[in-house]
Design a protein around this nucleic acid. Structure first.
Lengths: 230, 230
DNA sequence: AATATTATTATGTATATACATAATAATGAA
DNA sequence: TTCATTATTATGTATATACATAATAATATT
């Protein structure tokens, strides 16, 4: 449609048919601009789109190189569980299980160096049945107003997203056997696997919150897709 | 450092301190250009960077709105297992377990509509111990040269990445109990959880390959991080 | 009131030009 | 040879201008 899209498509084709194989260097912007008879800016538009897709890499003076696709980048999207459940047409339910204020020792991982912490345990239900167990620590030093929030009607997850700005989130995905808490609250039998999403949220090096979200493995999986550059 | 970075930072600050709360509309480009005393292009540079980070959304005529951060986008990177193992300083090993050509019925999921398929089972080892079991189906109609590849010295994963261009990959991450094959080849005990990465690769609607990668849950987890926009 | 048509407008693309910058390559000094 | 210094150069940023486009808003038609 737009010139830059056509240019991107033919560049992509040349990468795919090995005219420019992985590791090779592309002609520089002005040469491409001359070949396609467009301004340099239009070439830049096409190339930066391919950078975003992870197909090429560019460095000053070194030029533009085709990435060796030995790893696949894709965007992972983990929504707030209420939205995920509701958008599937099911009924969402929430139940606070416990909420306490702890001293820093509670944090075995060393994520919170030193801070007073709030520990919240809550359950998210799908059509009345347990779906996600939220086990969370909140840094009260960084988020003092969390001290006065009961989390009886709103989940920590949702409250935090609405109230607290963050700069980066690290997410771990793993499989585990159901813990005693998982068995009790997710109502699954001992020996069943659970899918764990653990998140550590920070605001410019300040640890804000850490959460372990556990799910019955039979009811939960994560799906992700690469951007389809055509 | 660069003007657009300063501008992006102050816009980000206004989003974080609720000057422009989630859902609100930002001034349009020319107004911002006037405020910051730069050209419209510089404002566009700052804003498009925030679009990439998923913090704002832009639509023609409607303008620029602050995204309601109810879901977190992060980039997921699943490398070829050999690179992951070697970059951790460990010794990589590979063993082909079986390789057969099947009729389409083998594909229960309906991913390959109709095609002759190659079924390959292979094991990836870390320091001599089983680490990842690769259970793969390859579309021989789309990738005929895979028929003559034995996969005795190179894994299907690596061979495909090097030989076959693709346009999109869908990845499923889930937890399961170890299957009979997992128990046998990953040398784990029955009843242990495994972490499954399942990938479906296509080239413009043509299904190319589907793979189930299973790992001992105790030895494998996926880590992902959001882009830290400052 | 509901639908179709037509402005309107903020974002998007394309152009040209000038200069900045980072990283490599070339050169010179030890 | 090795290290430090200095070009060199491809990408990156900033500018200004013109026009395209999609989506909303306003108007007219049924």
């Amino acid at each position: 449609m737009h010139p830059y899209e056509d240019i991107r498509a033919t560049i992509l084709e040349r990468i795919n048919n090995q005219t420019w194989p992985a590791g090779s260097t592309l002609p520089h912007e002005e040469q491409l601009a001359k070949e396609f008879d467009v301004a340099r800016g239009t070439i830049r538009r096409a190339l930066s789109s391919l950078v975003e897709a992870g197909l090429i890499e560019r460095r000053r003076k070194a030029g533009t190189r085709v990435v060796d696709r030995r790893s696949h980048m894709s965007t992972l999207n983990i929504p707030i569980i209420r939205h995920e459940i509701e958008s599937s047409g099911a009924q969402y339910g929430y139940k606070l299980l416990s909420s306490d204020i702890h001293s820093p020792e509670k944090d075995e991982t060393g994520f919170f160096k030193t801070a007073s912490l709030k520990h919240v345990l809550a359950l998210h239900l799908k059509d009345g049945r347990p779906f996600q167990l939220e086990d969370r620590l909140i840094n009260l030093t960084a988020i003092p107003k969390a001290r006065d929030e009961s989390f009886k009607t709103i989940s920590p997850n949702e409250w935090l997203v609405a109230q607290v700005p963050y700069s980066s989130i690290r997410t771990y995905l793993r499989a585990e056997l159901a813990s005693a808490l998982d068995v009790t609250h997710l109502k699954i039998t001992t020996g069943r696997p659970v899918f764990i999403v653990e998140r550590q949220t920070t605001l410019k090096t300040v640890p804000l919150t850490r959460v372990r979200l556990s799910h019955d493995a039979a009811q939960y999986q994560v799906v992700t897709e690469t951007a389809d550059v055509t």
